[in-house]
Design a protein around this nucleic acid. Structure first.
Lengths: 336, 336
DNA sequence: ACCTAAAAATAAAACGTTTCACTTCTAAGG
DNA sequence: CCTTAGAAGTGAAACGTTTTATTTTTAGGT
């Protein structure tokens, strides 16, 4: 069945194009009697407006495009969900794509969104430097980056206090007598990794201790790779504590711990990143750094709507606070 | 900066609209020299075509809309990822929305996709009966349902052999001496739950045993609710085996098992549903039913492309096979 | 040089809406 | 019964493309 157009509705209801359009956009200034006729006609023809034609002329779509690395990373999945809930409640639609950590795919997705006149773009970027994002210059809608900061890019950034919370965490481990703390983190050049590593150094410095760089390991954001590398490293390195500094590494650590039958916290103390139900899933309960996902979503939403009202976008950089949740996976090994 | 249009490119390159358009759509029949001019102009103006105008006239968007219940359910998240990868490789874009198990939101999302002229629609439906989907009749593009069957709806369905694989699973438990098998499954009326429960009955019947209906518990698809209900039930019911018949219940079971310090398989035998890395995460390795997610995605992709070529859609119903993976979480309790 | 056929370029129509400047209708006030 | 202002309705233009029928250019053969 061919899709009905507004012209069909006009003919069927015996009214003009303009009147039907007026009805569709708020029905102010259309007679009661005619409103009924139009309603009837629409029902008969199963008419629904073509958003392509509408968007073409209004230039507004009430839709927001979101690009995240992948759904399989529960941190991003949950962030996407929260955003969809927050923004959806305002009558906006959120559509999501994955970049799979590939800047080309990310670009393709963002340009798809842009050429479909999204009202705003939200992205958890996977590129490392500003040149990767040159193509955004031709896009005339608000753009919001989440999670990762990219130097030299003048857009909105919503971040967390990676450095400070890691500093707190490592200080806690040091204060419990740990000296050989293995940190597993995403590759160099990513804002979050670099900041988290900086926090590690800060803590050691605060306590007047020297960092053994060999204990900082970089692994791509992939659970399987994390599992493999952590297993290998744990077998060949002496350490009393393990700090997994992102979600895939936390998962990978737990796989390894199970596989090698390591007893937490007796054989090894452990701190993870991104709660994601993991504290409930594992026994004993895991000490964790937890990102304020709901807060990030709410804040991003607020900024999106503020930016959409502006003519010239005034972008800001914001850092929200993570929680350091102390449970039972770290042992006090100080000699008394 | 105002976005450049094809007219600007035409002016800048000193050529006509039609020529530029020809260039954009394959550049056959445009002089080498002029191709260069156009390329230049496009680069200068940072021009990119407006897909709204283009879609309006071509009626083709090379985009597929996908609606799933939620990203937080790793089974759906992974299904979405696989689909995006499979379909993306053909030059199509996949955009995703969540329904949050709400038929109204599902409807809104599907209609959004339809009015944006998606080339096809894919949905893991959350509605229980055909009336919920009346509105689809006005949509003239191929529609593919995944995971859930809904009686009376003439669309493409890609399902799995829920009943048979559960039959196998329960037979295995019975053959290991278990008689009081607690099954936790999603609410009545959902195709997957009902089929899985049917498999439970089949197995008991095959072994000439009677089902204790009290041991079949229905819980909404929500990890927290699953956790709460399973904990309560386990404390007040005698059973030697627990069969969690979907992803949230599997997760919820593991939370409970940890919380109550139940030892698997000595205190209780356990079988879960939807592998999702869980066999690696838990010790001992869990016996599981695993859905062929990649296969579902590949098959769905094939059907999508077949359907898009047809004039009148010839829909089919397909069932793919799950695996029953035996590991170490079920104890043989037969008296020898 | 001239003719012709093929190749390239063009201009106008079409897609399905909203918007805007008009026209027509309605009802209240004199 | 006439006037008039406000409400309701109308039809054409516009949005940025592709498509088409048509015109212009190019190049090959005599």
């Amino acid at each position: 069945m061919k899709k009905a157009t507004i012209k069909d509705v006009a003919r069927e209801s015996g009214l003009s194009l303009g009147t039907v359009s007026k009805y569709l956009n708020g029905s102010r200034g259309v007679k009661q009697a005619n409103q009924i006729k139009i309603k009837q006609a629409i029902a008969n023809l199963r008419y629904s407006p073509d958003e392509y034609a509408r968007g073409l002329i209004t230039n507004k779509t009430k839709t927001i495009g979101l690009v995240i690395p992948e759904f399989n990373n529960l941190f991003y999945a949950q962030l996407a969900s929260e955003l969809e809930l927050a923004i959806g409640s305002e009558g906006y639609t959120v559509v999501v794509c994955e970049s799979f950590y590939d800047t080309e795919r990310e670009k393709k997705n963002l340009l798809w969104f842009a050429s479909h006149r999204m009202s705003a773009l939200v992205v958890v970027p996977c590129g490392k430097n500003a040149e990767n994002y040159d193509y955004l210059k031709s896009i005339d809608i608000p753009i919001i980056f989440l999670d990762q900061y990219i130097a030299g890019l003048n857009y909105e950034f919503v971040l967390v206090n990676n450095r400070e919370v890691c500093e707190t965490c490592i200080e806690y481990l040091l204060d419990n007598g740990h000296r050989d703390i293995l940190m597993v983190v995403a590759p160099k050049g990513l804002y979050t990794s670099d900041e988290r590593v900086n926090g590690y150094y800060d803590a050691y410095e605060n306590r007047g201790l020297n960092v053994n760089e060999d204990l900082i390991m970089r692994v791509e954001e992939n659970i399987d790779k994390a599992y493999y590398c952590i297993k290998k490293k744990l077998q060949e390195t002496r350490c009393t504590a393990l700090f997994a500094a992102n979600f895939p590494n936390t998962f990978g650590s737990i796989f390894t711990i199970n596989e090698l039958k390591i007893s937490i916290p007796d054989d090894l103390s452990f701190v993870g990143f991104d709660d994601m139900m993991l504290t409930k899933l594992f026994r004993p309960k895991l000490t964790m750094i937890d990102q304020p996902i709901a807060e990030i979503a709410m804040f991003a939403k607020r900024r999106i709507f503020e930016l959409m009202l502006q003519k010239n976008f005034e972008y800001r950089i914001t850092k929200l606070n993570c929680s350091f949740l102390v449970y039972d996976s770290v042992k006090d090994i100080r000699v008394k």
